[in-house]
């Protein structure tokens, strides 16, 4: 027997209020993006797609968009590689307790604020107090980690450090789900661990790859606090979210909203198929 519709809404009401505010925000963004609302036009007038024309012709936005997409690429590729590397290493260990402890250890950067992560790495990249001192000592010479374009690459590597453990966790979950009987029959056939990993376990963990890719992409699209903490509003590391923030601070609200719409559209492309897939699973389950 189901709950009555009236009771349903009583239980759902608190979440509905906050959820409604969130969706109100999304629609308000769309509305502002169709106006010329800014410091110069404090009373918004409807201007259609004018804001998007300005946005797409803005060199600063073009750079921020490109850089964010590049960030997505770096984090997805390297995050998956590192995640797979860590997961396969942990998977070889016998003790479940040791496995869980090591997984948690590699996930720990996610329990820190990106501001803290930024401060730590800003000093590791410091030419006089950071790892350059070690590199110079080894005769490799120093690397200008945070100068010009290098800053983007250095910080995207830091983001890999933050999220690779999460990716490893997803891969491990997929590994544990691989049918033990397939592995055991391969072992009976005399297959070694390398063959079992590369032929059976990893190919059967496509779900890990899929989910890890979706989330790494989402994390990269949302990048803000890390570059902001390390280099403030440096043009070489300006992401899309930083562009939105910049335009908000300088009171070009219609540009901030238009850029926000682009962020929402890009993430929707990634998220909606995943949410539909999840929804199907939850509906079947109950």
């Amino acid at each position: 027997m189901q709950m009555s519709l009236k009771k349903f809404f009583i239980f759902f009401l608190p979440a509905l209020i906050f959820g409604a505010l969130l969706y109100y925000g999304v629609f308000w963004n769309i509305y502002i993006a169709l106006t010329n609302y800014s410091l110069l036009h404090p009373v918004p007038e409807f201007t259609g797609l004018y804001s998007f024309m300005v946005l797409f012709n803005d060199y600063e936005f073009q750079m921020a968009f490109e850089r964010t997409m590049l960030w997505v690429a770096v984090l997805v590729v390297l995050g998956n590689i590192m995640g797979l590397l860590i997961a396969t290493a942990i998977f070889q260990l016998e003790s479940p307790r040791l496995r869980n402890a090591l997984t948690a250890f590699f996930v720990y950067p996610m329990s820190l604020s990106m501001i803290v992560v930024g401060i730590m790495w800003r000093w590791i990249f410091d030419p006089y107090k950071g790892i350059d001192v070690i590199l110079k000592g080894l005769g490799i010479g120093s690397i200008d980690w945070l100068t010009g374009y290098n800053a983007f690459w250095s910080l995207s590597l830091v983001s890999v450090w933050v999220y690779a453990g999460f990716s490893a966790m997803l891969y491990l979950a997929a590994f544990y789900n691989v049918d033990r009987s397939i592995i055991e029959s391969a072992m009976v056939d005399g297959a070694d661990t390398f063959t079992i990993m590369t032929r059976i376990v990893i190919p059967n963990s496509r779900q890990g790859l899929l989910i890890s890719t979706i989330f790494l992409a989402l994390f990269a699209i949302q990048m803000f606090a890390l570059p902001y903490a390390v280099l403030f509003l440096n043009p070489f590391t300006e992401t899309m979210v930083m562009y939105v923030y910049n335009k908000f601070v300088s009171q070009y609200f219609f540009l901030a909203s238009a850029a926000a719409i682009i962020i929402i559209v890009v993430s929707a492309f990634i998220v909606i198929p995943y949410a539909m897939y999840g929804l199907k699973k939850w509906i079947v389950r109950r």
């Binding site: 969130l22 109100y24 925000g25 999304v26 308000w28 963004n29 502002i32 989402l218 699209i221 949302q222 803000f224 979210v241 939105v244 923030y245 908000f248 609200f253 901030a256 909203s257 926000a260 719409i261 962020i263 929402i264 993430s267 929707a268 998220v271």
Partner: peptide, 9 residues
């Protein structure tokens, strides 16, 4: 949904 995109609202 990235909450950062909802800055202005």
């Amino acid at each position: 949904t990235p909450y950062q995109a909802l800055l202005v609202p």
